[in-house]
Each structure stands twice: as C-alpha cells, then as structure tokens.
C-alpha cells in the first residue's frame, strides 16, 4: 500500500488527538466531563467506510488508546469497533448530505461507545457503577462531543477536502502535460 500525504496527515492528526485527549481536553472539562477527540476519528472514518472496515479501524484506534491507558486493555477495542460498525451500517441506509448527519453520528457513536464500554467494564471490573456513571459520564460526554464536533469536523473536513482538491489538481496537470 502506497502511503500518501493524506495518510500521513491522518496519522499526525490521530497522534495529536491521542496526546490532546490526555492533556488539553482535561483543561476544558465541564463538570468533570471532558470531550473525547478519539471518537471523531472513529466516527468520521466510519462515515466513509463499509461496516467491517469501519469496525477494523475502530479496533485499531481502540488498541492504541488502550495501550496508552493501560487499564482493562480491550474494552476500547471492542467499544470503538462496535460503535464504528453501527455508524457505518446506519450511514449506508440513512445517509443524507448535510451537516446534521455527522453531528448525529457523533452523538450516536459516542453514546454507543460509552454505553458499551460501561457495560463491559461492569462485567470485567465490578467497581464501576453503571447508573451513576451513565448519567454523570456517558450522556454528558456524548452531548459534549456533539457540541464540540462542529469545531472539529469543519476544520478536519476543510483539511481533507483541500488535500483532495490538491490531489485532483495534480492529477489534472499530470494528465495535461504527460
């Protein structure tokens, strides 16, 4: 597989999100709830991939996050993979080209991710209290992610769109002069 500039930019953005998630995001926490930058990668990837591909990339992202957290390795893998699968599945059936779609996808994806993580943590580690954590963590974080997604989605789409335009421009010039 040829690694393009687009891949490099996506990897850099992903690494930045991993770092910012543990440094910058706690600084903008509201009521102890900080947004999850990683979920944007999972959701935005799921919006352009097939369900199984989306689940695969969700699992990869989850693995990296799990390795950084170092606690109950595997919960993020399963949760991101499932959330990505559902989003990609829903996108294939109900997709509409408007701004509401990614916002809704972020909310549903965050909600599925948080809920599944909590259920799995409940099975694996008894101390996590389901109802309390659901009300104080999962729901507010899903809302926060959705609210912040505008600020993340628009620049991200701008960068990716610009790169797409540049790539097509280069292709056009290549075809024209060769």
């Amino acid at each position: 597989m040829k690694i393009s500039t687009r891949h490099v930019v996506v990897i850099i953005l992903f690494l930045a999100a991993l770092v910012f998630n543990e440094t910058l995001m706690p600084a903008i926490a509201l009521g102890g709830v900080s947004p999850n930058l990683i979920i944007y990668f999972v959701i935005f990837t799921a919006l352009v991939k097939r369900p199984y591909q989306a689940a695969f990339w969700g699992a990869v992202v989850g693995l990296v996050e799990d390795l950084m957290i170092g606690r109950y390795i595997g919960l993020s893998i399963l949760s991101y993979a499932f959330a990505a699968y559902v989003i990609a599945y829903l996108r294939a059936r109900f997709y509409q080209e408007n701004l509401l779609m990614p916002l809704l996808a972020v909310f549903i994806g965050s909600f599925i991710f948080g809920s599944l993580y909590l259920v799995l943590a409940q099975i694996i580690a008894a101390p996590l209290l389901f109802t309390g954590s659901f009300i104080s963590d999962v729901l507010p974080q899903s809302l926060y992610n959705t609210a912040l997604s505008l600020a993340v989605y628009v620049p991200m789409q701008f960068i990716l769109h610009r790169m797409q335009v540049q790539r097509e421009y280069k292709r056009y010039h290549y075809r024209k002069y060769h």
Binding site: R71, Y72, I77, L78, I124, A125
Partner: peptide, 10 residues
C-alpha cells in the same frame, strides 16, 4: 479480548 481486559486491571 475480554480475557485480556480482565487480566489487565489495576
């Protein structure tokens, strides 16, 4: 993965 998760607690 669930086995891995249960083996990597605190």
């Amino acid at each position: 993965i669930l086995f891995l998760a249960s083996a990597t607690g605190t």
